[in-house]
Design a binder for these strands. Structure first.
Lengths: 225, 225
DNA sequence: AAGTCGTAGTCAATAGCGTTAACTAACTTG
DNA sequence: CAAGTTAGTTAACGCTATTGACTACGACTT
């Protein structure tokens, strides 16, 4: 008869919203890992019933897309084009990397999806602006946009996936765990093993990004600024 | 009294094997899409019981890893290093792309995973051999290996994911479907829209691969062959 | 202030999922 | 041919996403 015994009270009407649900989902993924995104756990995180979220999202998939859009929003928050288009592309790339690193479970689940949302559009526009400033137009601009964006998103998404799988298992060494029947058959791998272990993934990404920027530079130069 | 009425007969003892199961799983994914990989459907595809596969794989995850290894095997089948290391890297990259294109559902589910299997090791060794022939050693070789491999695998994996999601939905246009409140706020995207639609993903991948090869070339030249 | 109405949140039910334990019969071994 | 292993089966479990029916909150009317 009191308001609640163990919290059996019905939630007030405006309690849930798409944004609030997405934030709860992101928090859940950050804190409890990639398997935490279920209607049951999301409901209890919001102190609501298991199916309450269905009033705001038609399916689990729709939540994932909304999370992707939220990651876009977080990544772009406060972004301004730099004076040099190269720095703009660097900034955008590292924002994606940073988001993948800080929200690995969410990024692994959502980053590879296309959202058609407003923040995704902002990101597309920002990249296109940079290659425009570099001097590229039309097909050339679109092509370089794709070379850059697909690379950055794919690699960041993969990075996030690696982070969650490393968190799950213990990520052992390299050639050691292969136990090939004949190690001599893979001489280059055997010899490179220690160096492969020492690889800094952040540095790898840096080099990949610089590669694309250099390429845009070269193509813009050839086309004439 | 006959052997079977509707196929109620118990399977003979050696009927199932890891390789056979993996092949059935791959066929299932190819023919019925990314959601077809369940114990129930895999069992009935093998004319076995739902749980028979557990005698050969400890979990669903282990099947996925085995599929990844099978994709590695398919990709590398018949591979021989070329005379020019550049052609070796091209060959390896396009083999991955081809596999992702031909087995999109399987590639989307498995390609992003590390298998620690023998064919993965073969691939690692092949890439390292190529960068070795280019003239890179030790840390330089390992770094360029990573730049190349992460790019190729990430992008091919993403390509596979795009193929299955295109198959599911109808992949609409671009800026058209964004319906931004203020299209004028995204001038570059609006203007580029038709060119973005016309992008050839295969050509994008070709350029990304050439980018890395050129980079390896430059670094090898600097280090002195 | 009472009435009505759309709908956000809840409840109950369902089919399908991965996984486990117990069972049984086919093959292997002595 | 007897005993023992174990691949394949059966039945059950808890969890999942999703659905339809229910209900009560709060915004509209007048």
């Amino acid at each position: 008869m009191t308001a609640s015994s163990v919290s059996r009270r019905r939630l007030a009407r405006g309690s849930l919203s798409r944004q609030g649900i997405v934030e709860a989902a992101l928090r859940l993924l950050d804190e409890e890992g990639p398997d935490a995104l279920t209607f049951a756990r999301l409901g209890s995180a919001l102190e609501a019933s298991t199916t309450a979220v269905y009033r705001h999202f038609a399916s689990r998939d729709e939540i994932v897309v909304a999370i992707a859009e939220e990651l876009d929003r977080i990544s772009l928050d406060g972004y301004e084009p730099a004076d040099d288009w190269r720095d703009s592309l660097r900034d955008l790339a590292w924002r994606a990397w940073r988001t993948a690193s800080e929200h690995p479970a969410a990024a692994a689940a959502a980053m590879h999806r296309t959202t058609r949302g407003i923040h995704e559009l902002r990101a597309v526009d920002a990249v296109l602006q940079a290659v425009h400033e570099a001097g590229l137009r039309d097909e050339d601009a679109a092509m370089s946009y794709a070379v850059y964006s697909h690379l950055v998103l794919s690699v960041c998404s993969q990075h996030a996936t690696r982070l969650v799988s490393v968190a799950a298992e213990g990520e052992e060494g390299w050639v050691q765990v292969y136990h090939p029947t004949d190690p001599a058959a893979y001489p280059y791998a055997v010899q490179a093993a220690p160096h492969l272990l020492a690889i800094d993934h952040t540095e790898v990404f840096r080099r990949q990004v610089e590669l694309v920027i250099t390429d845009v530079e070269a193509r813009a130069g050839r086309a004439g600024v």
